[in-house]
């Protein structure tokens, strides 16, 4: 099966908060890239407990990615031998981790989006996709709990943590247009409020549009690292 490229008619909507539900390829890449960013925290987290927690979440997301990628083709060929322009993750997934606050806020936004996706796919016609969603939705519940608790702790923590969360929100918000599907803002808003963070207007169009293969420079750098060994020995088995 060929990995579905973006259809030319799928330009981003001009209506904020009504991004289309993604197809399997978009979600596969989203989970893969999001997992990769979280895995960068291993041995770098603020506490050993968070090393374990972020590792868990990265593993869950990787499992979800593999479930979908292997359904769309050869999981390793897709992960290691496509160039940046062929990846279809929403751009927000590929942004660098920044500080811990930036990471948990990004996770919160992505987790809230994935909740909508998995929910919708519980009724998917494709039984593999449905199977991935059934498992993922439970994992996602835990991810949302983790990311939202941290957003709140840090938004409503110290002056410094609050300042950092405001910075994170400013940096990330321009990228949420692509993942602000119906219902997303309703999930996200209460947590931002409890975190004493403002809820800005939704952007009219997403910065870059990852699902169309338009990415930031960050994705190229990420792939240069992740694909380096596999590409050094193409055809090898590991």
């Amino acid at each position: 099966m060929k990995f579905p490229m973006a259809s030319p008619t799928s330009e981003p909507t001009a209506v904020p908060g009504s991004a289309a539900l993604p197809d399997a390829a978009v979600v596969a890449d989203a989970c893969l890239i999001a997992s990769h960013r979280l895995s960068e925290w291993v041995s770098n987290a603020p506490t050993m407990e968070e090393d374990v927690a972020l590792g868990n979440i990265a593993l869950d997301l990787l499992g979800q990615a593999r479930g979908l990628l292997s359904h769309l083709g050869d999981e390793d060929r897709l992960a290691y031998f496509r160039d940046a322009a062929e990846f279809r993750n929403p751009t927000i997934c590929e942004l660098p981790n920044g500080d811990f606050g930036h990471t948990v806020l990004r996770s919160w936004f992505i987790d809230a989006w994935l909740e909508r996706v998995w929910c919708a796919w519980l009724d998917a016609g494709d039984e593999v996709v449905r199977g991935v969603a059934e498992k993922a939705i439970k994992e996602n519940a835990y991810h949302r709990r983790h990311s939202s608790s941290w957003v709140i702790r840090l938004g409503d923590g110290t002056d410094e943590s609050h300042r950092r969360m405001v910075d994170a929100l400013d940096a990330l918000w321009p990228y949420v247009g692509e993942i602000a599907v119906a219902g997303w803002i309703d999930t996200v808003e209460p947590v931002l409020a409890e975190a004493a963070l403002p809820v800005p207007e939704l952007p009219a169009d997403g910065r870059e549009v990852g699902s169309l293969g338009r990415h930031t420079e960050y994705l190229g750098a990420l792939l240069a690292e992740s694909q380096s060994l596999a590409r050094q020995f193409p055809g090898a088995t590991w």
């Binding site: 291993v42 050993m48 374990v52 868990n56 390793d76 590991w238």
Partner: peptide, 25 residues
Amino acid sequence: ITRAPSLRRKAILLAKVQDEAGHGL
């Protein structure tokens, strides 16, 4: 972890290193 050459190896290595944090704890 970030350069693991297959997704299966990546998952296994992530799980292993995570275990180590747990052992420390």
